[in-house]
């Protein structure tokens, strides 16, 4: 008795899989979601309140990471508790989106609001309607 599966490959190719191919459109869809994934998902993982505290704190003067971190601690924001490093990831993300700018001074990196950052912050403060536009939304829209 021979192996009943000997011709399986050609049989499946000619029948079940005959018209089944991963189209160029599908590939493009994958590529597009790869491009979207890093920035948008990362921003979503932080609380609106945290973003607000950080941006508000930079409105008057530039601060370094440690100062921002202490401020969040004072405000009982626990987003970065035991994972302080992630604050720098978020700051870097905001920097990439030109919401904040960073400058090295005396071996420390100081962050300040950019014009774009100030505008976004102003919009969220002005809006008092129930469906307030979120900071995250504005940041994402501004960076498209």
């Amino acid at each position: 008795m021979g192996d009943p599966f000997t011709n399986l490959k050609s049989a499946l190719k000619k029948t079940v899989f005959k018209d089944i191919s991963f189209s160029e459109e599908r590939k493009t869809a994958v590529r597009n979601s790869l491009q979207e994934s890093p920035s948008s998902t990362q921003l979503h993982s932080w609380k609106e309140e945290t973003l607000k505290t950080i941006l508000e704190s930079l409105k008057q003067e530039a601060k370094d990471g440690y100062e921002i971190s202490s401020l969040l601690f004072q405000k009982n924001d626990s987003s970065f508790r035991n994972k302080e490093g992630e604050l720098y990831t978020l700051l870097h993300l905001l920097e990439n989106k030109s919401i904040i700018a960073a400058r090295w001074y005396d071996e420390k990196k100081y962050y300040s609001l950019t014009g774009k950052g100030k505008k976004i912050l102003a919009v969220t403060r002005r809006e008092k309607s129930p469906q307030q536009t979120s900071l995250k939304q504005l940041i994402l829209e501004a960076s498209i």
Binding site: P4, F5, T6, N7, L8, K9, S10, A11, L12, K14, T15, V16
Partner: peptide, 28 residues
């Protein structure tokens, strides 16, 4: 047709057999 019958029979195998048959004979 014979190839149809074979393909159909394989697709009707319970999953645990279908999986290994596909990987071994189709994917070689």
């Amino acid at each position: 047709d014979e190839e149809d019958i074979l393909a159909k029979a394989v697709m009707e195998l319970p999953l645990k057999y279908r999986e290994v048959v596909f990987l071994h004979y189709y994917e070689e």
